[in-house]
């Protein structure tokens, strides 16, 4: 047996993922509660119990705001990711010079500080609808995905490309049988990043101009010194992100289970 046997580091306490999360949550919350109690400055650092109490004070109102932000995040994520995949595919078929040109445009856009871009989008699309927030969340998600999706579909194994040439495959078949499946592991990793980016985008959008949503709630509660409610908003954002990551992880196992299996075995 190897001296560096990875099995030796195997966790003994909790073998399954959910149990490990629950255990971590319990330890973390307890530590937080203890620290908050000892520090005793609820306006700076409220403990989990105080945050939960704040939520219970107005669950309906908070959930309405959370629902609005969730819509922005999910719509932004779906639209942004779909457009990123479409763009990645279009970039494969356009002439070389046009691909180069578009790519420069993408890189330039990407290097503009997102916060500046977000404030502009709010100006363009208005603060009173969710459209501007969806657009910002979508923009964040788009840039988190488009580069990697394109790069992966472009840099397929040349031998596999030649194999398909020998079958006289057309472009659609190349995408279906080679480019997409071989890029899928990286696409899933990027989609997780895009989901997180969409959460950020929606909140940033709401900070710049909104009259509802968790971002608005953060701003509003901060003004009146209700730190606990800022925490409630932050926790709910985190939860939305986690649920999306969870769904993506399930889809990943379903669609690129082979890759998870392969990296584990080889």
């Amino acid at each position: 047996m190897s001296r560096f046997d990875p099995e030796a580091r195997r966790m003994s306490l909790a073998d399954n993922e959910v149990t490990r999360w629950l255990l971590f949550g319990l330890v973390f919350m307890t530590a937080w509660e203890v620290a908050a109690t000892a520090y005793d400055a609820p306006f700076l650092l409220p403990g989990p119990s105080r945050i939960f109490a704040e939520f219970v004070r107005a669950p309906g109102l908070i959930m309405i705001n959370a629902w609005i932000t969730t819509q922005e995040i999910v719509l932004g994520f779906l639209i942004g990711s779909a457009l990123a995949m479409l763009a990645a595919l279009v970039l494969l078929v356009v002439p070389r010079w046009l691909e180069d040109f578009i790519f420069r445009a993408v890189i330039t856009l990407n290097s503009i500080p997102f916060v500046a871009l977000a404030s502009l989008v709010v100006v363009w699309l208005g603060a009173n609808t969710i459209a501007s927030k969806v657009a910002i969340a979508g923009l964040y998600a788009f840039f988190a995905l488009v580069y990697f999706a394109h790069k992966e579909m472009l840099s397929t194994d040349p031998l596999k490309e030649e194999l398909l040439t020998s079958y006289n495959a057309d472009f659609g078949q190349r995408v279906r049988y080679l480019k997409l499946p071989s890029a899928l592991p990286v696409i899933f990793t990027s989609l997780k990043g895009a989901a997180m980016a969409a959460v950020n985008g929606a909140i940033v959008g709401e900070l710049f101009g909104a009259f509802q949503g968790l971002g608005f709630m953060i701003l509003d509660s901060r003004y009146v010194g209700n730190t606990a409610r800022v925490f409630v908003a932050a926790v709910l954002c985190t939860l939305v992100g986690w649920i999306m990551l969870g769904i993506l992880a399930v889809l990943e196992r379903r669609f690129v289970g082979w890759h998870l299996e392969m990296t584990r075995q080889t």
Partner: peptide
């Protein structure tokens, strides 16, 4: 080909 060039996902 010299390499088996199999699709790992299939």
């Amino acid at each position: 080909f010299q390499a088996p060039t199999l699709m790992e996902w299939r």
